[in-house]
């Protein structure tokens, strides 16, 4: 059966350079499969800055080099304003859409515990906001 693995990352309330660097480090250690799908959940984010955004871009590059994709999960109004302001929303929409219907078995999901970043165990991939 053709299944996909997903890494769901829940970002903290404040997402700056420090948090982004932590995210990058964790991603590198946890990307065990080729073509990883990373879903970044912004639902808790209330404040972001350019350093956080730069870090996120680095993560996207890392994922892209592994033939994977980063997509937006749930997004708070505040994060959504910031992404629109910086036009990053357009960049995210360029990545191929994660196919939730393809299924995602619990064994193949990466259930990391990036505590500070709030990485969550995901039973089912969540709908991805464009």
């Amino acid at each position: 059966m053709n299944t996909q693995s997903a890494i769901m990352i829940k970002l903290p309330e404040v997402f700056g350079g420090k948090e982004a660097r932590k995210l990058g480090r964790e991603l590198k250690t946890r990307m065990s499969t080729a073509s990883p799908h990373v879903v970044v959940d912004f639902s808790r984010v209330r404040q972001m800055n350019m350093a956080g955004l730069d870090g996120l871009l680095d993560c996207m590059e890392t994922v892209a080099k592994n033939d994977g994709a980063i997509q937006l999960g749930e997004i708070s109004p505040e994060a959504s304003i910031f992404l629109e302001l910086t036009r990053m929303d357009q960049l995210f929409s360029k990545f191929p859409v994660f196919d939730a219907s393809a299924g995602c078995t619990a064994e193949q999901e990466l259930m990391g515990e990036i505590e500070d970043l709030g990485t969550e165990k995901v039973g089912q991939p969540q709908p991805v906001a464009a």
């Binding site: 209330r46 404040q47 708070s76 109004p77 505040e78 959504s80 304003i81 910031f82 629109e84 302001l85 910086t86 036009r87």
Partner: peptide, 23 residues
């Protein structure tokens, strides 16, 4: 190279009129 859409912006804050949120 920014996009300010449907917002009120001061020199420190930005209020989005559709999302009814401020950053």
């Amino acid at each position: 190279s920014l996009t300010v859409r449907h917002s009120i912006v001061s020199n420190q804050k930005m209020f989005h009129l559709d999302r009814k949120a401020e950053i």
